[in-house]
């Protein structure tokens, strides 16, 4: 296939950590997403290509990849946006995660750190109790609501410079989850969540570069959440609560 405006030159990472790029030529379509391109390659050109996706509508968070050097959700990224109008698309797995094969990164460290940050709700009531009343207009609930829609795609994690240089750092997504729990009146173990966020590799490792916020596909602000945890941590220390 020749290099015309109707054809997209795609360089796709193949193999594991020490793999290499393989070139494909893919027909250009209007409103084509990056995931459309990957799916075309697997269905029409090379069925052995490994990649991950599920919902195709930006809800499941499974199709994150490095696209022309930037971490992105591929199902909601148009080829035009990713290439800036050029005819070359370069696809790699998400950075800072082990590579399983081709475009599939191993998300295990991401979810292990989520657990290490105690990113899970601890309930205080049983089904026999009344529903917990929450005022949607309260400042804490609004802070939680602003951060709650994370789809666990790992894009912020792959974009983070501190994650790249410090393997112990929990990362923006896990700490953002901790921040939502700290603002959730239903959370039964805020002390434990804050202790996890203050431990080594926690919120104090963040350099506030803001790459997480810059790259988050659902436009959350994990950087502000981590700053909020730092604030809570300083208040707890100055107040003698930890």
């Amino acid at each position: 296939m020749s290099d015309t405006q109707d054809t997209l030159q795609v360089r796709v990472w193949r193999g594991g950590e020490d793999g290499e790029f393989q070139a494909f030529a893919v027909p250009r379509r209007e409103h084509q997403t990056v995931l459309d391109v990957v799916t075309y390659i697997q269905r029409e050109l090379d069925p052995t290509l490994a990649y991950r996706f599920a919902c195709r509508v930006g809800m499941c968070g499974s199709c994150g990849m490095t696209v022309n050097g930037r971490p992105r959700w591929t199902c909601r990224t148009h080829v035009d946006t990713a290439t800036g109008g050029s005819a070359v698309l370069e696809l790699e797995p998400l950075r800072s995660l082990p590579v399983i094969r081709d475009l599939a990164a191993d998300m295990t460290p991401f979810f292990e750190k989520w657990q290490a940050a105690q990113g899970r709700a601890t309930g205080t009531r049983t089904r026999a109790d009344d529903t917990h009343r929450i005022d949607p207009a309260s400042p804490r609930r609004q802070a939680a609501d602003a951060a709650i829609e994370c789809i666990n795609c790992g894009v912020c994690y792959a974009a983070c410079d501190v994650v790249a240089s410090d393997p112990d750092y929990l990362g923006p997504a896990a700490l953002n989850r901790a921040w939502t729990l700290m603002n959730d009146d239903r959370e039964g173990d805020r002390k434990g969540v804050l202790a996890a966020a203050m431990a080594g590799g926690g919120c104090h490792s963040c350099h506030s570069h803001g790459s997480c916020t810059e790259h988050c596909p659902v436009e959350l602000n994990p950087s502000a959440g981590v700053a909020g945890l730092k604030r809570l941590s300083l208040l707890a220390m100055v107040g003698g609560k930890v």
Partner: peptide
């Protein structure tokens, strides 16, 4: 007080 957090506080103070 966890050490990493205490160092963070000491550096800011």
């Amino acid at each position: 007080m966890p050490v990493p957090a205490a160092l963070f506080l000491a550096q800011r103070a």
